[in-house]
Amino acid sequence: MAALEPRLIRRLDQDTEWLALDPVRARALREAGVHSMMVVPLSARGVVLGLVCFYRAQCPDAYEDDDLALAVQLAARTAVCLDNARLYSRDHSAGQLLQFSLRPPEIPAHTAVETAHSYLPSGPSGDWFDVLPRAAAVMGEIRAAIGALAALDLEPDELLERLHAARHPARRPTDPA
């Protein structure tokens, strides 16, 4: 398998050299009545993901070249699916780390509002202390705006009104004169 080539073994003899090196597997194959097999590597995008083995025991016919061609196609599609899952898992983990790193290290105390928080990742869209589902860039903008407005020590309703006006400039409230 070092060459990553599929192998067709039409007739599996119990005294085959490579099988003699693995007596446990040889006994299991013999007990199952395996007489023909195919071994196909699972590789995609230059990454070896594993090996798939097809055994024939019940059917008296041996595997043929057509069977091997089908097994190679099946293994190729399976390898791409497995590699996609591997890549998704890697990217998902990186996304979760990014989300976690966007949290502020500590929540500042303010006299105008009592703050409580918890962190529950909401998925690929991002989150902000599980209150506002937003993308990562918007989360940073909101955090900066709230920090700046909170420093003014405004009443909560006025702080929220100004935050809303900052996010929606076309709907700015009229200043009382």
Rank of each mutant, 00 (worst) to 15 (best):
Arg56Ser: 06
Val39Phe: 04
Arg167Gln: 14
Pro124Cys: 06
Glu161Asp: 13
Asp66Tyr: 08
Ala136Ser: 12
Asp153Trp: 03
Ala44Phe: 01
Arg7Ile: 14
Tyr55Thr: 07
Gly140Arg: 13
Ile146Ser: 06
Arg162Glu: 08
Arg162Met: 10
Gln58Met: 06
Gln96Met: 15
Gln96His: 12
Tyr63Thr: 03
Ala32Glu: 13
Ala112Thr: 14
Asp66Asn: 11
Thr16Glu: 11
Val34Tyr: 01
Ala145Arg: 15
Val113Cys: 10
Leu8Met: 09
Trp18Asn: 05
Val40Phe: 01
Ala75Ile: 01
Pro6Arg: 11
Val34Ile: 06
Gly33Arg: 02
His117Val: 08
Arg90Met: 03
Ser93His: 09
Leu51Arg: 15
Asp153Ser: 12
Asp83Gly: 00
Cys53Val: 15
Val72Thr: 09
Arg56Cys: 04
Ala69Lys: 15
Ile107Ser: 03
Glu161Ser: 15
Asp66Phe: 08
Asp130Thr: 14
Ala136Leu: 08
Arg134Gly: 07
Pro169Thr: 00
Leu74Val: 10
Leu12His: 00
Val138Lys: 04
Val80Arg: 06
Asp91Tyr: 12
Ile142Met: 06
Ala26Asn: 15
His168Glu: 14
Ala28Lys: 13
Ala20Leu: 14
Ala76Phe: 00
Val40Met: 04
Arg77Val: 13
Val138Phe: 02
Ala116His: 07
Arg103Tyr: 05
Ala166Asp: 10
Val52Asp: 02
Leu51Ala: 12
Leu120Lys: 06
Ala79Lys: 02
Glu155Gln: 13
Ala177His: 07
Arg134Glu: 07
Leu97Ser: 08
